[in-house]
Nucleic acid binder design. Sequence first.
DNA 1: GTGAAAGCGCTAACAC
DNA 2: GTGTTAGCGCTTTCAC
Lengths: 337, 337
Amino acid sequence: MFQAATIKQIAQALSVSVSTVSRALSDSHEISEETKKLVQAYAKKINYRSNPIARSLKSGRSNSIGILVSDVANSFFSQTINGIESIAYESGYHVIITQSHDVYEREVSNIGHLAGRSVDGILISMSSQTTNYDHIKDLHERGMPIVFFDRIIDDVATFKVATNNFKSAYGATKLLIDKGFRRIAFLGNAPQLSITIERLNGYKSALADHQLNFDDLLVKHCFEGGRNIQEIESALESLRSSPTEANALLIASDQLSIAAMRVLTSKGDSKNLAIIGFSNSDVIDLLSPQISYIRQNAFEIGRVAAQMIIKLIESRYPIYEFETRLLDAELHWRGAK
Amino acid sequence: MFQAATIKQIAQALSVSVSTVSRALSDSHEISEETKKLVQAYAKKINYRSNPIARSLKSGRSNSIGILVSDVANSFFSQTINGIESIAYESGYHVIITQSHDVYEREVSNIGHLAGRSVDGILISMSSQTTNYDHIKDLHERGMPIVFFDRIIDDVATFKVATNNFKSAYGATKLLIDKGFRRIAFLGNAPQLSITIERLNGYKSALADHQLNFDDLLVKHCFEGGRNIQEIESALESLRSSPTEANALLIASDQLSIAAMRVLTSKGDSKNLAIIGFSNSDVIDLLSPQISYIRQNAFEIGRVAAQMIIKLIESRYPIYEFETRLLDAELHWRGAK
DNA sequence: GTGAAAGCGCTAACAC
DNA sequence: GTGTTAGCGCTTTCAC
């Protein structure tokens, strides 16, 4: 059994009271220098560390921030997490990371666990399988500071930060049109996700602005967001077969971009198909065949999200004005033309 | 302020005592069915969730496991984490992930935080910058269950699990020799890391077994383990320049493999250089130029590590016999010959 | 300047 | 079958 030193042990050893020890350790002005020195020296000697659990129970604060992402293996998320950590640590917060794996029950369980362990706030990127938001609404109504990033929802009024997905998808689609492509397909994640909706809207809007008809057959959703390779295979197959036959493809999800590349490469079907995919992979530019990509400012999204949650946590007054920050992404064209 | 429902509120609302509520919620046999139903129904109604902080303070247990890795962006680690989670969740443990970013102070701080928040055990992969192990020894001596995975240390007697690094590096080196290469260089992470030492030993041993001289000039270490691109650039440069001039390269670290590929690609220097790199990247086989790679069984390492820590946590008697499990890795040859 | 004591939410030994 | 109470480690109000 792990047994840490306690304030009580110090008190007994030094024949003072626990409150004196507590005050001495927190450098209270009402304790004599002499006693402080004594207590602090002894605490150091026995390697005393205050028990954060007990302190949390007392104060209701923990100086830690919880994160929920679908998967840390996704470069976008690991970069976002690094952004969050960079701000959190310099503000004195610890960061606790959990994964939903895009499974609703995991999301509910992890958020419950984070709330229960009294993190001071939670940063959430929604699981792609989640369609019921009650677990989050409840928590929010009971006062838990929450900030959404990347995959955000409208149903909860709070701070949010994401890429300007509409603009990014619009720009990518426009570029494909400008390059002469007319049969542009859209491959997206689960349809209720904010990132899917906004990117699809950008795509549609660009088509409309360039007098191209929107064709339902050119839009495919992967409900398991890249975890199920078969789903992607059949989506790509139908997009590539007549009468649909797309000659360009916008992939609206990081996980899908890599997975689709794999499918297309193994099928030898990447020729004559212009691809732009959202991807923050650090090796996306080393892949062969080359793929054009949209790189989100993941680190900055993390930084902004962390600043927002800390603002919420540390605000002395309730906040009613919430901002949704949208950050630009970079489009990297690697196509032939 | 986030305010959760408490057992006390339930007790008051139902005009029973807190202990009755506590027992009813834990389905104690000494409570009448009637009262149980009443309490449980009300608890559900107000969405009561027992406060794990309070319970931890009382029981000293938290049913959660802490993980320390250098970086979740590293595919090897994210896969290991997924393996850990798969076992942990089915055993009723939550998993808390933290990153050291290979910085000693972060490692100390995160391990302290995990211990303080009373996780029941900690899974550790050492930071590449750590050379002093006192923070871990202390914790271990005070009874905290600890399991090492991947980057392990000798100084603490406990369960450990890693790839059979000696064997993997030996096999890779031997393959290069068999393919006819004679000037085989070794590019490794920080020299005190177990993975570096064992892989270097495997490399040396294969050379010796094939009557090749070991040449100090053919071994380079990257102390910042791939975070500093300049370090890699200069290492590669000196390996490729006469009189050293390596014509084959064993890269003994995941992060280095990708980073080295980037450097070599940008320099156009990957021709006439056979490379085998440790890598669990999910796109390593899509890179161009192709690189041969050693893929570790990361998921299984995670599963084993989790089983070990749970065994330690749940053991009723102190354990004195510790196993170090070594798992085989797969070598994928992608070279010309 | 220091001590005593209450209380954070929960569990469990001990009443009755 | 249910209530009372002590205590986990800590902070903080109130005494002195």
